[in-house]
């Protein structure tokens, strides 16, 4: 039993990963100081002028920044919620299909949109969601008036969230299906013996067995709470929906990337990281306290 107490093998096992982390994550983190500088590339990190919190102040000085942060939060939170719930439900439904060929085909198909970039999908969606586009023609058959999906502030967020869920739900199902496949078949057999209906089996065996992985994925997703999806919004938005559709990342793109204000871009990044860190800490604690579940 002595060998078990030794922990040096643990450190050895972690060594390659830690080296990679150090080189590719922690070394570059030195750049965070740019957030407090009026960074000029030719002056470098040591030579650029220190401006304290000016970069952060600018974010909050803009008349529209509260709206932008709110947009980001609303879109991101709804995306996180639906990107958990829908794959969760879908995995359970798919698991009920017992013909392997049908199951496999469906799974492969729903997985496809994940591979198309938003640049491509943006173009297709703009076409399909046009006032006289495919989606509205279908709705028209049910007597619904044409909807200006991408040009109406009330519809834009809805469109963004639904299209994101549509793109990602198949792919997000993978983890849940893996968890489902890992459920011990004897549990079902025992339930079957007790005469439990399939619905009850689902409720008492399937769902509880998926909860741990759901908590993991959900907690990790919280780190994305200020990432509302730059690629998607950037390819879909337009001045008509600035009010409800402009998010932090599109705003940073317009100022930081196009104007090359790197200090400002870094400041926003840091702001987002700190918020994410707090959220992850909180949810980690909650998962541990209430569910007795350690995520990492």
């Amino acid at each position: 039993m002595k060998r078990m107490k030794k922990t040096w093998p643990f450190h050895v096992m972690l060594l390659p990963a830690v080296i990679c982390l150090f080189l590719f994550s922690y070394l570059p983190m030195g750049g965070i100081i740019m957030a407090f500088q009026n960074y000029k590339p030719w002056l470098g990190l040591s030579g650029s002028e220190w401006v304290g919190l000016d970069n952060f102040r600018y974010l909050f000085e803009r008349q529209d920044s509260m709206q932008v942060i709110l947009n980001t939060l609303v879109i991101a939170v709804l995306k996180i919620v639906f990107n958990l719930l829908i794959p969760f439900g879908f995995a359970i439904l798919l698991n009920e299909v017992r013909k392997t060929a049908v199951k496999g085909t469906i799974q492969t198909l729903v997985y496809l949109p994940h591979f198309l970039s938003w640049v491509i999908l943006g173009g297709i969606l703009i076409e399909m969601l046009a006032v006289d586009g495919f989606a509205n023609r279908i709705l028209g058959m049910f007597g619904v008036d044409p909807i200006f999906f991408l040009g109406d502030n009330n519809w834009f967020r809805f469109t963004v969230i639904i299209s994101d869920v549509w793109k990602e739900f198949g792919y997000n199902t993978i983890v849940f299906l893996a968890a489902l496949a890992g459920v011990n078949p004897t549990l079902y057999e025992a339930a079957e013996m007790d005469g439990a209906s399939r619905f009850r089996q689902t409720l008492h065996i399937t769902i509880p067995s998926m909860l741990p992985i759901t908590v993991v994925v959900g907690t990790l997703a919280l780190g994305n709470v200020l990432n509302a999806g730059f690629d998607q919004i950037f390819n879909l938005y337009n001045p008509l929906v600035y009010e409800k559709g402009d998010i932090i990342d599109t705003f940073v793109y317009r100022t930081a990337i196009i104007n090359g204000e790197m200090g400002f871009g870094t400041a926003i990044g840091l702001f987002k990281s700190v918020i994410s860190m707090i959220l992850i800490l909180v949810s980690y604690r909650m998962a541990y306290k209430w569910a007795g579940y350690r995520i990492f």
């Binding site: 994550s25 570059p28 750049g31 990281s273």
Partner: peptide
């Protein structure tokens, strides 16, 4: 170790320092 991993997932120094490294 686990915080070392999680921390690296959340914070990053941005493109320029990464490029320099």
């Amino acid at each position: 170790y686990s915080w070392l991993f999680v921390f690296s997932m959340i914070f990053n120094g941005g493109l320029v320092p990464f490029y320099i490294v």
